[in-house]
Design a protein around this nucleic acid. Structure first.
Ligand code: FES
Ligand code: FES
Lengths: 141, 141
DNA sequence: TTTAATTCATACTGAAACAGTAGGATTTCT
DNA sequence: AGAAATCCTACTGTTTCAGTATGAATTAAA
């Protein structure tokens, strides 16, 4: 069970944006350098963040990205789901032959994974971007 | 973020073992048929479960596996960690150039993933094999 | 004593997913 | 005009996953 880089980077980048939110649009080049993430990869991530209205873009020179909402209103769950697809602990949905759906009823462990899913999502749900920034405000920069 | 089949199958198989625990050693063939999991794959999984003293094996014909402890004493966390390696949400340990370890200090999101890790583990920690069996005792067989 | 059923052990493999790269087009500030 | 940025999409090497495959060792039963 592991986290993918897209989710990890997205949260990092959003946190970076939150820290520098008073300095106008932040370019991905800046974020790339500060957080040590590939620029081209960040571009892909930000397209998704933009689609979810988490950030606003400013094109052209001196452009960049700005948070759409204040950091205290942005849930981590929103960021993760925007780029990292989803938490997949259940197996039964996709007609897999193995393990599940063998008897057209739910497998022994279905409820367990379902609860796990909720447990993880509730974690991301209750943490806001602001919660990350506070702790790192004085460390970074 | 997704669960791997090894962890999923291991919990399934252990639950199966718990359900039929009064019928002597249960063969992997039985589990394979009941839970619809590849036999050869189950064999690999059970070697690990055995190493962790979660099950005991009986070799030869009429052999099979038996739980080492009563279902109410077996934590899901133990099963998962026995086969599924670990929950990997942190990235900083392994000298990766990208994202973490850029400043020889922890990245902005380190604490978040660390907490997530604990959150997930505590979930597996508090659920016992018996909790799964109860709910499915009458459904299966 | 032979056969069948089982665990044990290890090596191999096809397919998919991941984590990026690459290359260019478009927009806008200076 | 030129530089700095976002935008867009296709491609790709590597690793991981999920299983196969093969054979040996052990033991109950016929
Ligand atoms: S996880 Fe839903 S049926 Fe197995
Ligand atoms: S997760 Fe530990 S430094 Fe980034």
């Amino acid at each position: 069970m592991k986290l993918k880089t897209k989710g990890r980077y997205a949260v990092m980048a959003m946190a970076d944006l939150a820290i520098f939110k008073d300095e106008g649009p932040i370019s991905l080049t800046d974020i790339s350098l500060r957080q040590n993430i590939s620029l081209a990869y960040l571009e892909q991530i930000f397209i998704k963040l933009k689609q979810e209205n988490l950030v606003k873009s400013v094109r052209g020179a001196k452009g960049g990205y700005v948070l759409e909402s204040p950091p205290e209103e942005i849930k981590i769950s929103h960021i993760i789901s925007a780029v990292d697809e989803e938490i997949k602990t259940l197996n039964c949905k996709k007609e897999s032959k193995r393990g599940c759906n063998n008897k057209s009823s739910k497998c022994i462990t279905h409820n367990l994974w379902d609860q796990l899913d909720q447990h993880i999502n509730s974690f991301f749900e209750k943490i806001k971007l602001q919660d990350l920034v506070k702790k790192n405000q004085m460390i970074d920069k």
